[in-house]
Design a protein around this nucleic acid. Structure first.
Lengths: 177, 177
DNA sequence: TCCTTATGAATGAATG
DNA sequence: CATTCATTCATAAGGA
């Protein structure tokens, strides 16, 4: 059933896995319907970003219905929230009869309408900024913003990438830097 | 588009073309394996929070292997450090054989006892050996890390395999968690 | 059997 | 430094 999966999820590719070794099969969690149901229920109750204890407890509970780890719960909420939001965004474009009010900007807040029973975790987080600065479509304006200085207090970055600096063949030694 | 600017949109691209989502807009830095390797190397050498000067130099060096900006280096170290710590701070055994030691113990107590104030100690040490810390370089495959949970603070979940923990029949109430 | 979609997982980028 | 958002990759599931 789940033996055919080659397992490893490598993203950047370009390396080989010793798939032969061990049972590391990296199979991913797939939730049972009860688990999904309960998670969804929680989400719809307003829980968006569970704290660690909450995650922990949820995970505990859900483990009754099937194998699960805390991180699964964590990811689930992250993904669910993100996708809900992105769906919203898409919809706001598409939704003709969405009556103009603040459907474009305020999407996230109107979902839950403020009926939280949830402790206090969210409601701040969701109103962050939907489009930071550089949303998805900067396209050719300029993708490399020079806003690097905000990383740290006084950090100034310079770009040397096009340069013709003498590079060491293949190694970076700490002592050098 | 800019194809000459190598180094950015080079991901996976191996077997089985996935859905043509490779529009390759690639707004964000996508490190090459050499870059990751070197960064990891530095990290493992003990570099945790490089100064701007160091960042600059590192970036400069790494630009040989692909497009990179200083801020990428900066973020990389931040993220790597944070996630490394996270990983370490909360044990989590991945599926299967959770070491039976601590996973079973306080399940019931912490669920129902409400006071699951775990002393924040982590006996991670032994678990650490299970997962090689260094994913990229010397082990086999990087993406393998079965790294546990990166949820939040003290997370400890339980596997009730065969256990007789008293689980609620079929409902999770928000008020509980 | 192949293609499409849904979604778990991972990580770059920010923000406080 | 911690927490969160955004985006992308990989894979399981479902349809044609």
């Amino acid at each position: 059933m789940e033996e055919g999966m080659s397992g490893f999820c490598n993203r950047s590719g370009s390396f080989f896995s010793k798939s032969g070794s061990s049972g590391t099969k990296c199979g991913r969690w797939n939730p049972t319907s009860e688990q999904v149901k309960l998670l969804t229920q929680l989400f719809r109750s307003g829980l968006r970003t569970p704290s660690s204890d909450q995650i922990q407890k949820i995970s505990d509970q859900l483990s009754f219905y099937g194998k699960i780890e805390s991180k699964n719960v964590f990811y689930w909420f992250q993904n669910h929230k993100a996708r809900e939001r992105q769906k919203r965004h898409k919809l706001s474009f598409d939704d003709k009869y969405a009556n103009s009010k603040e459907n474009i900007i305020d999407v996230s807040t109107q979902i839950f309408g403020g009926m939280y029973e949830v402790p206090e975790v969210d409601r701040v987080t969701e109103t962050l900024q939907l489009f930071p600065l550089n949303s998805f479509d900067e396209s050719e304006s300029e993708k490399f913003r020079v806003h690097a200085n905000e990383c740290s207090d006084n950090m100034m970055f310079s770009y040397t990438m096009g340069g013709q600096v003498e590079h060491p063949p293949l190694d970076l030694c700490l002592s050098f830097i």
